[in-house]
Simulated assay, not measured.
Amino acid sequence: MSFSFFGNDKPTVAQLLASLPQQGRVEWLGLRPARREPMRVVAQAQAETDRHLLGDHARPQPGGKRQLTLIQHEHLTAVAGFLGLAAPLDPGRLRRNLVVSGLNLLALKNRQISLGEEVVLEITGECHPCSRMEEELGAGGYNAMRGHGGLTARIVRGGLIRLGDVVRVVPPAA
């Protein structure tokens, strides 16, 4: 889809929001085995439809909006830069389940994405940082994460998520 910004063919906001031709990639997968335990880095994870990732301690209710969490790979370097830490940050320190590169995840709020050949997620909202980021990242960790905390998602269709899976935007239903 291409637009000309001259004349009467200026795109509408709806057209601009729908224009997401990029695809991304799953760069990292992690499970939280128990509250406050270190993340367990995995090469693949089983997503249960409308539930959670198997092996993750979170047990959201069916229909819940926070069945798994994602963070933008590109933001790991930004947050590290704000804190003067080595970049990129180890994603396990941020306690998100998936790290995705190549897509602006925030632009996908209220949209669906597919991961690999099986899994479909609905991006439900922002994953705001908590005070624990001060413990993990040091003074200023909470504020460094503001606007970079990632997103929450509901598992629309479960299946196996693998490291390296292609992440695509699901076109909206007609």
Rank of each mutant, 00 (worst) to 15 (best):
Ala174Glu: 06
Phe6Arg: 13
Arg157Asp: 02
Pro88Trp: 12
Ala14Pro: 04
Phe3Lys: 13
Leu89Asn: 11
Glu135Asn: 03
Pro91Leu: 03
Asn97Lys: 09
Pro60Thr: 07
Arg32Ala: 14
Arg154Gln: 12
Leu103Arg: 08
Leu115Ser: 12
Gly125Leu: 05
Val41Lys: 14
Gly30His: 02
Val100Lys: 02
Leu31Asn: 00
Tyr142Gly: 13
Gly159Ile: 12
Ala43Ser: 13
Ala47Asn: 14
Gln112Ala: 01
His52Trp: 04
Leu94Phe: 07
Lys65Gln: 15
Ala78Ser: 15
Leu16Val: 10
Glu117Phe: 01
Asp9Thr: 14
Leu108Trp: 03
His73Gln: 11
Lys65Phe: 14
Lys109Pro: 06
Ser2Met: 15
Gly24Leu: 06
Leu89Ala: 10
Gln23Pro: 04
Pro62Gln: 07
Pro91Asp: 06
Leu163Asn: 04
Leu54His: 05
Gly102Val: 06
Gly125Phe: 01
Ile155Asp: 01
Ala139Tyr: 05
His73Arg: 15
Glu135Arg: 12
Leu76Gly: 06
Leu94Arg: 14
Gly164Ser: 11
Leu54Pro: 03
Val166Asp: 05
Leu31Trp: 01
Asn110Trp: 07
Ile155Tyr: 04
Ala45Ile: 15
Asn104Trp: 07
Leu106Asp: 13
Thr152Phe: 00
Arg157Met: 01
Arg32Asn: 08
Val170Ser: 07
Ala173Pro: 05
Glu126Thr: 11
Leu68Glu: 08
Asn143Tyr: 03
Pro91Gly: 01
Arg66Asn: 13
Met39Leu: 10
Ser19Lys: 08
Gly125His: 05
Ala144Arg: 08
Phe6Asn: 13
Arg93Glu: 13
Pro172Gln: 11
Leu151Asn: 05
Leu53Arg: 02
